[in-house]
Lab assay of single mutants.
Amino acid sequence: DELEKRVKKIARKLNLSLDQVEEWLKRNNNDELVEAVKRLKKK
């Protein structure tokens, strides 16, 4: 979905793993995208 695409884009842009992106999003209080990261990690 759109949020998952955004997460992947962030990960690529910042050259981070999904775990690192998740931490980064949590620090930025971006719950919506944190949920998207969790969905991606399950895939």
Rank of each mutant, 00 (worst) to 15 (best):
I10H: 01
V37N: 03
A36T: 05
L3W: 10
R6E: 14
E4M: 10
V7E: 00
D31I: 15
R6T: 13
N30A: 14
I10W: 02
E23K: 06
Q20P: 00
K8T: 10
N29P: 07
V7D: 01
I10F: 01
V37K: 03
A11I: 13
E22S: 03
R6M: 15
L16R: 02
L33Q: 01
E22G: 04
V21S: 00
E22L: 14
R6H: 09
K26N: 07
L40F: 02
L16F: 10
E35T: 05
K8I: 15
N29V: 08
K41G: 03
D1Y: 08
A11N: 01
R6S: 08
L33K: 00
W24H: 06
K43Q: 09
N15V: 02
A36Y: 03
V21C: 06
K26L: 09
V7W: 04
L18N: 01
V37Y: 00
D19Q: 07
D1N: 11
K13H: 12
R12D: 13
K9E: 15
K38I: 10
L40S: 03
E23I: 06
E23N: 07
N15G: 15
E32G: 06
A36I: 11
A36Q: 02
L16H: 03
N30L: 15
E4R: 07
L18R: 00
E35S: 05
K5H: 11
L3I: 07
K42W: 02
A36N: 02
R12Y: 06
K5S: 11
L14F: 12
V7S: 01
E35C: 13
N30I: 15
D1I: 12
I10R: 01
L18F: 07
V21D: 00
W24D: 01
L40Y: 04
I10Q: 01
E23R: 06
E32F: 08
K42Q: 13
R27L: 15
D1E: 11
V37W: 02
K38R: 13
N29Y: 10
V34I: 11
E22D: 05
K9H: 12
A11D: 02
V7C: 06
L25E: 00
K43W: 10
E23P: 00
A36P: 00
E4K: 05
K13G: 08
